[in-house]
Design a binder for these strands. Structure first.
Lengths: 171, 171
DNA sequence: TCATGATTGTTACTTTATAACATAGCTCTC
DNA sequence: GAGAGCTATGTTATAAAGTAACAATCATGA
């Protein structure tokens, strides 16, 4: 979900079903948007959005579920015959660095980043039924965390805030 | 740290240095307290605190750093010659279930739980210099999260809140 | 065109984790 | 105390996640 907002249900004809792996994933143009945005980001930063990196990002955006390394490898092989673990992890490292994907620590998996600005604070809601991951902003949360860190004399460098549970649609 | 509070520096004679793996770990009786508490918890719940489970918990409490599976296996082998991965993971699963340890998702590692009550809300502060992990209560934080979850119509089942950075002593 | 750095190919390996079935040990009941 | 039933551990095998090291290739600018 590019904005984390309402999910509009388009008629089936608009869906690119063949590419959509998640049964609950309604194709809303988010993937195309993400790829396009990634192109711009890479151009701006003077880094190369190579075919492999593009393919990996596309696969990750095929659903709103977190993609595991093994699945990713299986799914990239038809497109990049030479793909091996290192191929994937390099592309993933690149995409993480550019802020184009997030790592879901509690799943050892990866999801596309739907932030409008890169590297912003986020909270991940992981549904244990449909396995979709929703990324939400958490400015208020970060205020509370900042207070706690101050008390603890702790300087934050990176964080993972991941909630597992039942999403609204599955409830 | 049993209470997350001040760390009292005892004279060296009081330290059981031979058992303390972490160079920065000041032995404060926390391990003995943890083992004793674990005994009580297991008795109350009618579950068995077997020698293997006790050894695993002891090893985890040898420092305030998170222990990785591989290290744990290396360190348990001298004590339990037959130890294999399954041995460890079974003991870890047990200790997790009883709330005696936490899993640090962003490290794929485990630390002793220093909560006075089991299963309470906590926040993990992970120092990237000394690698010690401090567990802190986060009731206020949970209020902010609850609000966010309500907005998202999300029902929480479990969570991981992990902050990486520099602790006060290392700063 | 050639040098340079970035990217990808390739091989090998480490670390993390689980599944499945066999064996041993505890505990309760008869 | 025998034996049934459950829990815990032993054992083997394998899946999944991740990294290191070096070779080959490609893009780009001097």
């Amino acid at each position: 979900m590019t904005g984390g907002g309402l999910r509009v249900m388009p008629p089936k004809a608009e869906m690119t079903g063949s590419e959509c792996v998640s049964p609950t994933h309604v194709h809303c143009g988010c993937r195309e948007k993400a790829i396009h945005s990634a192109e711009q980001v890479c151009n701006q930063c003077g880094v190369r959005f190579t075919p492999i990196r593009r393919e990996v990002l596309k696969i990750i955006w095929e659903s709103h579920r977190a993609v595991k390394a093994h699945d990713l490898l299986d799914r990239i092989k038809p497109k990049v015959g030479t793909a091996k673990p290192a191929t994937d992890y390099r592309a993933l490292d690149f995409l993480l660095e550019q802020g184009l994907i997030h790592r879901v620590e509690s799943l050892n998996a990866f999801i596309g980043c739907s932030c409008s600005e890169r590297q912003h604070e986020q909270l991940l809601l992981i549904c244990i039924r449909c396995h979709e991951v929703e990324e939400r902003p958490c400015e208020r949360l970060m205020e509370a965390i900042a207070k706690e860190l101050e008390q603890a004399s702790f300087t934050m460098q990176r964080k993972a805030i991941e909630i597992h549970g039942i999403c609204g649609r599955c409830a």
